[in-house]
Amino acid sequence: MPQPDEAVLETDRTGDLAAVGAGLDALDAPPQQQRTPLWQRFVSTALPPLVAFALLIGVWQALWASAIWPEFQLPAPGDVWAKVTETVASGDAAEILWTSVSRAVLGFLAAVVIATPLGLLVAKVRVVRAAIGSLLTGLQSLPSVAWVPAAILWFGLTPSAIYFVVLMGSVPSIANGLVSGIDQIPPLLPRVGQALGAGKLQAARHVLLPAALPGYLAGLKQGWAFSWRSLMAAEIIATSPQLGLGLGQFLHNGQSLNDISMVIAAIFLILLVGIGIELLLFRPLERAVLRARGLTGAL
């Protein structure tokens, strides 16, 4: 039992310790990162790609001006731009883009719904992983164009055929992303979850899925890219009036009409959508997730 003077000593010591502890906290806490001003970030992130793009256009213009290749093989940048503005002005561009983008988004969302439980199963159930794990990885390397003939034979020239190709393209990527995300969780975290009293479902909801989120997001990003390019492959090959005019058909029509400006304009629009979704949706999402975990090195 402490004597009164001991008690005083004790409080003195705890007071001291509190001060030492507070000092340690102040000294050891990692320094907060300063946010760089907006214009600096613009200069360092947006300017380089813009300059690169301008250089590319410049080289293209020079090559066209030197007339090494005939006009029907290498159009002038201005002609392509005119084609783009023409389709935009006539309202065709909006319709074409809407047809393709809505298909890709719908297909992608369906792929997410299918691939997420599939990925969880492959990651957590040993038998399932042994059975279809390598098949899933293999499917990822199979070009989705290969599915187009089969899809047309099975579903005819219908939207179902196109959606089938999109799904076959993106489901393996998303599922594999989730699997590798779960595989890379530090083993201590699920253990902590268990020690804190999480049941199986709770562990999945509160530990497994959030911990696997960076890998899952990478998978989603790749899944989107795959569903977009699968869609283009399907649209180029499976052309039919009842399928409506998408970007792929637009590209195909350009080839049929021997109109190289139209072909390049279509490629430009396809790229634009791909880069746009990446920059507007996935990049900020990934950045927010990684930044919240202190993983700023890659950004």
Partner: peptide
């Protein structure tokens, strides 16, 4: 329920400090 503390803090990196402390209560 006995609580366990490991050699590593093993905090959930996606949760703030207070939400980490809340986690067992939430569970």
């Amino acid at each position: 329920r006995p609580a366990v503390m490991f050699q590593e803090a093993a905090l959930m990196p996606w949760l703030t400090a207070v939400r980490n402390v809340e986690l067992p209560l939430r569970l």
